[in-house]
């Protein structure tokens, strides 16, 4: 049962850091300790959590998506324009986007291309399309998305329910389902997956498709929160999503990921920014301080992992 401990440990550090940070925020700003407070703290983390899961799926097969931010921005622009005015066309475009991701996943594998280069190139494509679609910021969020994002369910705020839901669904897909085992296998040991009779091509295409679906959801949620779009609305998501995966216990290679951890990582990143702003730290120091929080969490994880490794021997 050693794998269970490793898995739990992987989650322990991010969960603990989120708890500590949350306690600190409550201490600095007691007003946050309420239904509205929690919602305000975490609602913008929902699209980040979705983008983080998307990035995590790509990282599961040992790739990296540097176009995540521009892709989410593009989806946001589609959502605020076509999906609102002409839902059929909007849905078709979004389905087409998923298709593009499938092709990307296959091309990267078949031609043995570095995913970083391909997705970096795609980031300019998505960015350009977003500007073509919305040369000036604007558009309107479809009412139903807006209604979902500002809904006020009883007892627990929307942001928390959404985060738990995202974590649960992603956990089920990646950790519990047979498909999840295969894509993690592709990341861990591609050859053994092939030998076991699975198609790596198909697994990678599916992983990319699923990632695109989560990224599309991220863009839609974001527009639901902001009410309208902007071609540069989500540029930060590229790095935030990668940081979220790593913070949540994932690794760049080997198919070692944790969906629950990734969601926690996204929440932690959002919370860290709010915490620093509550402390009234000067903006010149905020990026540095945010980096420091990241490094502390990662260092903590490394120390714990080492200890666990030592105990195993």
């Amino acid at each position: 049962m050693t794998w269970f401990t490793a898995d739990r440990l992987r989650l322990l550090v991010p969960a603990l850091s989120l708890a500590v940070l949350l306690a600190a925020v409550f201490w600095v700003q007691p007003r946050a300790m309420s239904y509205t407070g929690l919602n305000l703290l975490f609602n913008l983390a929902v699209p980040i959590a979705l983008a983080t899961i998307a990035q995590m799926l790509i990282m599961t097969v040992n790739d990296l998506d540097l176009s995540m931010g521009t892709f989410v921005s593009f989806v946001a622009c589609v959502t605020a324009t076509f999906l609102q005015s002409n839902p059929v066309v909007g849905v078709l475009i979004l389905v087409g986007c998923v298709g593009v991701y499938v092709v990307l996943g296959m091309v990267i594998y078949l031609r043995n291309l570095p995913s970083i280069v391909v997705t970096l190139g795609m980031s300019f494509v998505w960015g350009g399309l977003a500007v073509l679609l919305l040369p000036a910021p604007g558009g309107v969020a479809p009412d139903w998305i807006r209604a979902v994002m500002v809904s006020k369910p009883p007892l627990v705020p929307m942001a928390i329910i959404a985060s738990v839901l995202i974590a649960a669904v992603a956990h089920w897909i990646v950790i519990r389902s047979a498909f999840g085992v295969v894509i993690r296998g592709v990341g861990g040991n591609e050859r053994s997956v092939t030998r076991a009779g699975w198609s790596v091509l198909r697994a990678r295409a599916a992983a990319y498709a699923l990632a695109a679906v989560f990224a599309v959801l991220a863009g839609m949620c974001l527009v639901g929160l902001t009410t309208s779009a902007d071609a540069n609305i989500a540029l930060r998501y590229t790095l935030l999503s990668i940081a979220g995966v790593i913070l949540g216990g994932g690794e760049f290679v080997g198919g070692r990921v944790s969906p629950i951890g990734a969601v926690i990582g996204a929440l932690t990143l959002t919370l860290a920014a709010s915490f620093l702003s509550f402390l009234k730290i000067s903006p010149d120091w905020q990026i540095g301080a945010q980096g420091a929080i990241l490094i502390i969490v990662l260092a903590l994880r490394l120390v714990l992992n080492r200890r666990e490794g030592g105990a195993g021997k």
Binding site: Q29, R31, A32, G37, L40, L41, N43, L44, L222, L225, T226, D230, N232, I233, A234, R236, Y237, T270, A273, S274, S277, F278
Partner: peptide, 13 residues
């Protein structure tokens, strides 16, 4: 923009 939106929400808090 996303960061500023979060900043404004923090100000509300």
């Amino acid at each position: 923009a996303t960061e500023q939106a979060a900043q404004i929400q923090n100000m509300i808090l």
